[in-house]
């Protein structure tokens, strides 16, 4: 379905790192919502499937100045350079098995088309993509709890966070049924992690819709960053940042923190560069 440009959604989230306690509820809810299988041995985290993964960051100082922050990392649903939809992973997949939804901004994964070459995994700097090294398995009896809305994945293919796309489909169906197909109320489409977070650290919605909370917090700048033409949608909130923004991946997951050292961990900076760049955070590009 092709939508008119001004009607296109751009779903995204902002995660308040000062609220996140690192409890992992988002990870658990994601796994159960999306039928993520279990392995006999989950100790090798480089082989565990965690669409949502919570990283632990520290300010590197010793006691008593140590500070810790937990950073949940779903797929960032990158829009690619200039936000044209050429995400790092989408642009490299030889079989068009991962696709950019211009109507939603969501990067999809077509499980039945992926043949497991893993080029997309190499291209994603966030390690948001996971390969099914084993046949999917669930502890006995647990298959009964699988969600009928999400297809389980077979061995030998790649999977990743879909922003709970099936929930979007349900909300869209409801909007159609109610006769206002272009209006999906904010509360009708929320990802599993957002609803599960006990601290309310995750805010999800349509970045293109000024009525949505995510838009109000992020205040995305629709114009390219004058300092880096590849970057679009930079936040005009000085406390909000994106992961590896300088690469031009144009992610739709934003992070929020009052603490400077946390914001600094969002990207790579040369020596002395941060002090110059940090003052530009929250700048609007055009006046």
């Amino acid at each position: 379905m092709k939508q008119e440009h001004n009607k296109a959604h751009k779903f995204g989230m902002v995660i308040d790192l000062d609220k996140c306690t690192g409890c992992g509820s988002c990870m658990v809810s994601c796994m159960s919502e999306n039928n993520v299988p279990f392995k006999d041995d989950e100790s090798d985290k480089k082989k565990s499937i965690t669409w949502m993964r919570v990283y632990k960051l520290t300010n590197g100082k010793s006691f008593p100045d140590t500070e810790i922050v937990y950073m949940p990392r779903p797929c960032q649903h990158c829009g690619g350079k200039g936000d044209h939809g050429h995400s790092p992973c989408v642009s490299v997949c030889p079989a068009t098995a991962t696709d950019y939804g211009y109507d939603t901004g969501i990067v999809s994964q077509i499980y039945t088309r992926c043949f497991g070459c893993r080029y997309c995994m190499g291209a994603c700097p966030y390690h948001a993509r996971y390969f099914n090294w084993w046949d999917p398995k669930w502890p006995e009896g647990m298959e009964k709890y699988l969600s009928p809305d999400v297809s389980p994945r077979m061995r030998g293919i790649v999977e990743k966070c879909s922003f709970c796309y099936h929930r979007y489909q349900a909300a869209r169906d409801q909007a159609y049924a109610e006769g206002d197909k272009d209006n999906i109320p904010e509360e009708n489409y929320q990802t599993a992690c957002t609803t599960a977070c006990p601290a309310g650290a995750i805010v999800f919605g349509d970045l293109n819709n000024p009525e949505h909370k995510v838009h109000q917090i992020v205040k995305p700048d629709p114009h390219p960053d004058p300092r880096n033409k590849h970057v679009v949608g930079k936040s005009r909130n000085p406390k909000v940042f994106r992961l590896l923004e300088r690469l031009g991946t144009n992610t739709k997951v934003y992070y929020l923190s009052d603490r400077e050292w946390v914001r600094k961990q969002g990207d790579n900076y040369l020596e002395g560069e941060w002090d110059k760049i940090k003052n530009h955070h929250g700048d609007t590009s055009h006046g």
């Binding site: 050429h86 642009s91 030889p94 079989a95 098995a97 088309r113 043949f115 497991g116 070459c117 030998g156």
Partner: peptide, 26 residues
Amino acid sequence: IDIGQPLRGWFIFWHANVHSMLTEVA
């Protein structure tokens, strides 16, 4: 040997993504 789903190897030709370098390689 390298691809996860060898029986789908032909997808690279059938569903070719012209933007991908790997498509050109194949």
